[in-house]
Simulated scan of single mutants.
Amino acid sequence: MRIFVTPAQLVAGELVVRGDEHHYLARVRRARAGDRVELVDGAGRRAAAAITRITDADTALAVETPQAIAALPPLVRALVPLIKGDRMDTCLEKLVEVGVDAITVWPAARSVVRLDPARKPARLAKYQGALQAAARQSGRAQIPAITLADDLAAALAALPAGATRLVLDPASDGPLHVTAAVDITIASGPEGGLAPDELETLARSGFVSVGLGPRILRAETAPLVAIALVRAATRT
Rank of each mutant, 00 (worst) to 15 (best):
residue 5 V to R: 02
residue 58 D to V: 04
residue 36 R to H: 11
residue 92 L to R: 03
residue 229 L to V: 10
residue 227 I to V: 15
residue 199 L to P: 08
residue 229 L to A: 15
residue 83 I to G: 01
residue 173 D to H: 11
residue 113 V to G: 01
residue 53 R to I: 03
residue 67 Q to G: 01
residue 175 P to Y: 11
residue 24 Y to T: 06
residue 120 K to W: 04
residue 154 A to R: 08
residue 115 L to N: 04
residue 123 R to M: 13
residue 164 T to C: 13
residue 85 G to F: 01
residue 114 R to P: 11
residue 7 P to L: 10
residue 111 S to G: 05
residue 229 L to D: 12
residue 109 A to E: 15
residue 190 P to I: 08
residue 176 L to H: 13
residue 131 L to S: 00
residue 28 V to R: 04
residue 201 T to Y: 03
residue 60 A to M: 08
residue 168 L to H: 12
residue 214 P to A: 14
residue 5 V to K: 06
residue 90 T to Y: 13
residue 74 P to R: 09
residue 199 L to S: 08
residue 68 A to V: 15
residue 23 H to T: 12
residue 212 L to A: 09
residue 63 V to H: 03
residue 76 V to N: 03
residue 48 A to L: 06
residue 105 V to S: 04
residue 6 T to W: 05
residue 212 L to D: 08
residue 207 F to G: 06
residue 21 E to S: 13
residue 40 V to P: 01
residue 13 G to S: 03
residue 156 L to I: 13
residue 228 A to T: 11
residue 128 Q to K: 12
residue 176 L to V: 10
residue 132 Q to C: 06
residue 3 I to W: 04
residue 144 P to G: 05
residue 109 A to D: 13
residue 12 A to W: 05
residue 154 A to W: 06
residue 84 K to M: 03
residue 55 T to P: 04
residue 184 I to M: 10
residue 229 L to W: 13
residue 135 A to N: 10
residue 202 L to A: 07
residue 85 G to L: 02
residue 178 V to W: 10
residue 17 V to E: 09
residue 9 Q to V: 10
residue 154 A to D: 14
residue 210 V to E: 10
residue 73 P to E: 08
residue 19 G to Q: 05
residue 148 L to E: 03
residue 129 G to C: 14
residue 126 K to V: 01
residue 63 V to T: 06
residue 129 G to A: 12
residue 45 R to I: 03
residue 185 T to S: 14
residue 84 K to V: 04
residue 205 S to W: 08
residue 49 A to I: 02
residue 228 A to N: 09
residue 231 R to H: 11
residue 146 I to D: 00
residue 33 A to W: 09
residue 174 G to A: 11
residue 168 L to F: 12
residue 53 R to K: 13
residue 126 K to L: 12
residue 184 I to V: 15
residue 40 V to N: 07
residue 209 S to F: 02
residue 7 P to C: 10
residue 118 A to C: 03
residue 72 L to D: 08
residue 221 T to M: 04
residue 134 A to L: 03
residue 217 L to V: 09
residue 142 Q to F: 04
residue 128 Q to C: 01
residue 25 L to F: 08
residue 6 T to A: 15
residue 233 A to N: 08
residue 228 A to I: 07
residue 15 L to K: 01
residue 127 Y to R: 01
residue 10 L to Y: 04
residue 15 L to W: 02
residue 163 A to F: 06
residue 80 V to R: 00
residue 10 L to H: 07
residue 96 V to K: 08
residue 228 A to C: 11
residue 171 A to M: 12
residue 159 L to Y: 09
residue 112 V to D: 06
residue 106 W to I: 03
residue 12 A to I: 10
residue 147 T to P: 00
residue 144 P to N: 06
residue 208 V to R: 15
residue 39 L to T: 00
residue 92 L to P: 01
residue 3 I to A: 04
residue 167 V to T: 14
residue 40 V to A: 15
residue 55 T to C: 10
residue 133 A to R: 11
